[in-house]
Design a protein around this nucleic acid. Structure first.
Lengths: 161, 161
DNA sequence: GCGTGACTACTCGGATAGGCTGTGTCCGAGTAAGTGGGG
DNA sequence: CCCCACTTACTCGGACACAGCCTATCCGAGTAGTCACGC
């Protein structure tokens, strides 16, 4: 059980775009070079973030990607949900209702089974933790922000890449 | 992101085997019929539980599966870990160290990045919740236990199946 | 009565196959800014 | 001087290929009870 690698991509892209917000939109080409990621696939994975209203993209010659709302209004949960869909680590197939064991079922089948309940609670704890942290918090490293801006200038300056 | 279906199987099997503990071991054939599951595959998925010391299996004509320790000493986390391996929903690929963005990296790369930290905390909350509940708790439904024992008797009595 | 061997009903572990999902690539279409030529 | 067409650098969305994991099945080997046979 593991979530896709693109969740890490999405979060780091959000943080970086937050740091570079005043530089205008960042093209997918530069973003891919920034993290050394496959450009075409990264583009594909950012699109759901745009649909979710987290990132915005503008076409045209000076177009690119940027945050669509304030970093403190984007939770980590938002990004995960946008990228992984309606996350449900444990999906109950209700096997208790099947086979011989289900015969003579009482009203207990109207309530969710204990297994499901425990899994749901764990899932909720996980979700709550993710919803408690925002992109703004992840941006809170002055050195990293500074270095990012410096590197970005250098990247733009160099004709190659 | 989703965990395998066999986690549900494993947990329900543990609970049922707990209820039927005084009936001796239950053969994989009966267990599969109980939940209407594919017998061969269920067998394969129970084996890791045996290796983890959660279930025990005895060969021979009256052999079968049973709990290897007391139900209140088996946490839901134990079962999940045994079936899914060392669970790590979020695996950090350290993309921040790659590409142009990593140039001029300071000592901040010695510490795990913010993204990883948040994901780890969420993961921990999830794990803690799973570790807080045992098979014994899941067994705590007298009606279900009673119905299970009745159905099991009937199942043994009927020659077919 | 008792030992021995065959039979039966189980488990264990490896080999193999199909399907789904995440990863990755490619291509045509659309859009906005810059550029250059003609009125 | 201004308008329009062209080029350029982007994004959008769909189609497609590949790999890894989960699900599922099959088979040979091992083990423990049971049973019958012969001494």
């Amino acid at each position: 059980m593991r979530m896709g690698e693109s969740v890490e991509w999405g979060l780091h892209c959000c943080v970086t775009l937050g740091w570079l917000a005043d530089r205008g939109p960042v093209s997918i080409r530069r973003l891919a070079a920034w993290f050394d990621l496959p450009q075409e696939y990264l583009k594909k994975r950012l699109q759901p973030l745009a649909r979710a209203g987290i990132l915005g993209s503008s076409p045209g010659v000076h177009g690119g990607w940027s945050l669509a709302r304030s970093p403190d209004e984007i939770t980590v949960m938002d990004v995960v949900t946008a990228l992984e869909g309606a996350v449900e680590p444990f999906r109950c197939a209700e096997i208790r209702r099947r086979g011989v064991g289900a015969r003579g079922a009482g009203p207990e089948f109207d309530r969710p089974c204990g297994v499901t309940t425990v899994m749901r609670r764990a899932e909720l704890a996980w979700r709550r933790e993710l919803a408690a942290h925002t992109i703004a918090e992840l941006m809170a490293s002055p050195e990293s922000a500074e270095r990012t801006r410096r590197n970005y200038e250098r990247m733009i300056a160099s004709v190659v890449e």
